[in-house]
Design a protein around this nucleic acid. Structure first.
Lengths: 118, 118
DNA sequence: CCGCTCCTTCGACGCCCGTCGTAGTATGGC
DNA sequence: GCCATACTACGACGGGCGTCGAAGGAGCGG
């Protein structure tokens, strides 16, 4: 009966309603994670985990991606063997109005770049 | 020659231009410090250090006030033997547009109260 | 001058989080 | 089938931050 190849490699992106303010603020308080946010905002489109320029090891990067995903700052999905990441500012805005937008803007400014139009 | 009573008890509130995004986000990432922010916003006017309802010791509270002041989230000034605290959202807005406003709003919501009009 | 109230400073301590390397799993190409 | 690639899971380690209590300075009222 068409075995589901052991694990179809799915990611569960939490619902915004499960995120706490504490979680969100802790997530964006780390410089490495803010770098992820900035690179995503500047790129203007999804990026695979491997294409980020981060000053930490791969396993540490995975950890940071998890934190960001659980805080609903990014959403992730597999695409073959690579994992794509995108910002999800709109959802979170309903729960914490203006907050993530402002953080993203500040992250981009901090990195000295300009975000691409969406 | 009119001795300056040893120490006139002055507080130096840093300039907004010296604050980093890292500093600001770390400051608001702590629940005790967010409680300070919420209580100030709800009160709608200055509060002395002693009037806050915080789940930590006095010395720890002092530490948190310092962190908030150095991040330009609050400004402090002595008034006799008590030290008064006020939010200073306007200054910081120039450097990190919308950020502190959004944080304050979320802090107030988090505490389940409604802020007084200013 | 004395004591009371506020708040600060200092040193110590414990825990949590960011970090790493290694080993492991899933996918795709040949 | 088999290897290469991409990411994850796990356990361990270290440093930093939040916490406290004790001791102390500053102003105010008698």
């Amino acid at each position: 009966m068409a075995r589901p190849k052991s694990t179809p490699r799915t990611v569960d992106n939490p619902s915004v309603s499960e995120v706490t303010l504490q979680q969100l603020l802790e997530a964006v308080a780390d410089p490495v994670r803010r770098s992820v946010i900035a690179q995503l905002a500047i790129a203007g489109h999804d990026l695979s985990c491997g294409t980020f320029d981060l000053p930490v090891s791969r396993s540490t990067a995975t950890h940071h991606f998890n934190v960001l995903r659980e805080a609903c700052v990014i959403s992730q999905h597999y695409q073959g063997t690579t994992k794509m990441n995108s910002l999800r500012p709109d959802d979170l805005d309903a729960r914490f109005p203006g907050l993530l937008r402002a953080v993203i803007d500040s992250c981009v400014r901090e990195s000295g770049q300009v975000a691409q139009a969406r």
